[in-house]
Design a protein around this nucleic acid. Structure first.
Lengths: 217, 217
DNA sequence: AAGTGGTCTAGACCACACC
DNA sequence: GTGTGGTCTAGACCACTTC
């Protein structure tokens, strides 16, 4: 890393092989391998068998975004977290959901509409459905005290998740709930979670104006 | 991973130590260590010396977002990339910049205002400054053919970067440049890049309506 | 065919955190 | 003190990719 930083090895350069570096640094090859592997994982190096290791030319910068449970997000801001379940009902998947998530039309879904608050101020509005075929226990959970997100996180393992971040204009209902002007810019996160091939839950989260997500590389 | 998924090991559970797992799977402890370390890096396990390894209680927290160079982002959408430098001038840092990035008032900055296009359609608007004290060579670079971002990526190593993602309403000028209604919701990315303790560049990127950033865990 | 990274082993010592 | 993970070593074989 120091040699990349000091530009002794410049982007695109071929660097010495593992054996050579191990000799130079007086350590085992496995140690060099781990170091180079970690630099490659973080995007600074490109490695190929036989071709060798090069300093990345187009470092597709990989940022690790921490997506906290909303409770933690709010509490990290020094505020008290609370939430209200605005509505809850069982429903069948729409045609779009059936196609997008591979759900049978007979699948029983639990729909939840929730407003999350920070110190009584609205923080984020959440629309969610949960696949009751995969998580039948959710029917008996008390989702008024422990949020659906936290219940799922504690009771289901995570296999695969997709996140999409975008910007949107607050609808009339959203602006009312989030206490912001209509059409104000809101940060929107879609998230779906799967176990193997089964969709467990999908969420649309709308954060009020001023919300930002920060990350460090 | 299979045992976490199958809920044989549930969130919060203490799992066996490395030695025990190595015996069970008939492999070396180093192999178990690597497997557990990778699962911990991806957020599925929490590890502590002496305390042991537990299945993470908040497993979804780390998503790796790939932040591509805009050219790649556009080309990945199957469109032709181009850009125009709208304005370029040298300037001194404002008081806010001096404080925020630790710049001396005498620091020479290069300011750049750029519009990025996908198939001639506006894609993103960029405001950037570059610290010429750290990167004097930029003064001679032809930034009309190779974008400042790509020039920097090829010529400077990346040490440390900060990203902030948020939503904003397009200003009048932005809506004009991005060909969208005034106050349309736009996706805004702030990004600053440092080498050791020197700020190299900071960027504000405004993506037109409809832009979204997707990531998979 | 040959050279590179990818992975594994068996063993060792260390550092930290909890007792 | 003691048990856990963290790291390293020396050696070995494998797999991919380029020649």
């Amino acid at each position: 890393m120091h040699r990349i930083n000091s530009r002794r090895w410049r982007p695109g350069d071929l660097i010495p092989g593992e054996v050579e570096l191990a000799e130079e640094f007086g350590c085992a090859r496995a140690t060099v391998n781990r170091a180079l592997r970690e630099l490659a994982d973080s995007g600074l190096l490109d490695r190929k068998r036989k071709a060798g290791t090069r300093v990345a030319l187009n470092p597709v910068r990989k940022a690790t975004v921490e997506i906290p449970v909303i409770r933690q997000d709010v509490e990290a801001r020094g505020k008290d977290y609370s939430f209200d379940v605005l509505d809850r009902k069982e429903l069948a998947p729409s045609a779009v959901l059936q196609q997008q998530y591979g759900l049978a039309s007979s699948t029983q879904l639990l729909g939840l509409w929730t407003l999350h608050r920070a110190d009584t101020m609205p923080f984020a509005y959440e629309e969610r459905w949960i696949n009751m075929a995969v998580v039948p226990e959710i029917a008996d959970a008390d989702l008024a005290t422990l949020s659906a997100n936290e219940w799922l996180v504690r009771n289901m393992p995570l296999l695969r998740g997709e996140f999409t971040f975008s910007a949107g204009n607050a609808t009339g209902a959203e602006s009312h709930l989030l206490n912001c002007p209509r059409d104000a810019a809101v940060f929107v996160v879609y998230r779906s979670t799967w176990v193997v091939d089964d969709a467990i839950t999908a969420v649309r989260l709308v954060y009020g104006p001023g919300y930002s997500m920060k990350t460090v590389v």
